[in-house]
Design a protein around this nucleic acid. Structure first.
Length: 347
DNA sequence: AACCCGTCCAACCGCATCGAA
DNA sequence: CTTCGATGCGGTTGGACGGGT
């Protein structure tokens, strides 16, 4: 388990490479190959450590490196492979010729990860976030709003501390569900708004989204407009909510089975859709140790309960969309919204 | 013009892994 | 089996840059 002595070795240069250094390295490798990276700097006349030379070559100087923006196809490939492999950047890079692991990692951290978070998805599991703490600010706002509206305070519904805790979790679950609906709707209509005829709907959706989740107004339109647009989600009230973001729509058409097979072969569109049986295979293939705060899995309470005809699996219960063809994609409404006027007003 | 702030990305750091001795 | 050198890999940093005020 030896550690290579690093660049802090005496006098070795660090920092950005000059053109002259690039030329030396390029010339040496083109004529001799890189051989031993450790000896390369000395042989090439570079005052760098071998590690630095290797990085410079693999991430920048290599002739087969593709530069420029990631294409739509590359983006979807990264999303899909990340959902399967996790942060295995080098493994992902092997499926993207000309792209380096460093480049993919940067692209993920600066674009894709943020986009997933904005849309309410855990970037590690690629599934809707259901963590209590992420919803806490909205939960507090919701409680305040309810009080203003003269609704029944949470504490009033319960008689003891334990019951109060349950009530809080119920509220969190309701809020998350509501947020998911709004995200779906806002995303959909925002996508439709690229067509000139739906300005009013888009404005309404954005305004509605801003009420519950201000970040929705900042949704990256490129995501929504480029995502597959064909799914529909049967919501709690029986309405059809068209859904544009693929991962949140485990829809029920038979063509999705085909899509599933394509995805499992690796490189189809990120238009994820899955049956309940596929949840583990498609989504939960890596550790899922999120960089975000640990998830408090609200759906645990509902796990293994029959929900709309299917069983919530505890192993995958962090998703509120884990259902499939026979399941409501949003498993909470039947449990949590029997007659809550505040919620039903929205539905 | 100056400052602030967020984004991007090349490069570094340190741990993990592999293979030879 | 253990040790050690070399390399691979993922997380993180910091400087450049651009947009907003």
């Amino acid at each position: 388990m030896g550690r290579s002595p690093c660049c802090d070795e005496n006098g070795l240069k660090k920092g950005p490479w000059t053109q002259e250094e690039d030329e030396k390295l390029l010339h040496y490798i083109q004529t001799n190959g890189h051989g031993s990276w450790r000896t390369l700097p000395r042989l090439a006349g570079l005052n760098r450590c071998g590690k630095s030379c290797r990085l410079r070559w693999t991430n920048y100087l290599r002739p087969d490196i593709k530069r420029g923006k990631f294409s739509q196809e590359e983006e979807q490939t990264i999303l899909h492979l990340h959902s399967v492999l996790g942060n295995k950047w080098s493994a992902i890079a092997t499926h993207l010729p000309g792209r380096t692991d460093n480049e993919i990692k940067n692209f993920w951290n600066t674009h894709l990860k943020k986009r997933l978070i904005q849309m309410g998805f855990d970037p590690m599991t690629h599934r809707p976030r259901t963590d209590f703490f992420a919803a806490l600010p909205q939960l507090i706002a919701l409680a305040a709003l309810r009080e203003q509206l003269g609704g029944t305070a949470v504490a009033d519904q319960s008689s003891g501390a334990g019951a109060a805790g349950v009530a809080i979790f119920e509220q969190a679950a309701k809020l998350q569900y509501l947020q998911s609906l709004l995200q779906s709707a806002a995303t959909t209509i925002a996508a439709a708004s690229s067509a000139p005829s739906s300005d009013t709907e888009a404005a309404a959706a954005l305004a509605l989204g801003a009420i519950c989740s201000p970040q929705l107004t900042a949704l990256d339109s490129s995501t929504t407009t480029t995502a597959p647009v064909s799914s529909s989600v049967d919501n709690a009230s029986g309405q059809l909510l068209p859904c544009t973001f693929p991962a949140e729509a485990p829809v029920s058409s038979e063509e999705d089975e085909t899509k599933n097979q394509q995805q499992q072969t690796g490189l189809s569109s990120y238009g994820l859709s899955c049956r309940a049986d596929d949840v583990v295979d498609v989504f939960a293939c890596h550790g899922g140790n999120s960089s975000l705060p640990a998830l408090t899995d609200l759906s645990d309470a509902a796990s293994n309960l029959p929900v709309d005809g299917c069983i919530m699996r505890s192993a995958t219960a962090s998703s509120s969309f884990g259902g499939g063809s026979s399941c409501s994609p949003l498993p909470w409404p039947e449990l949590f919204f029997p007659d809550d006027p505040f919620i039903t007003d929205f539905l």
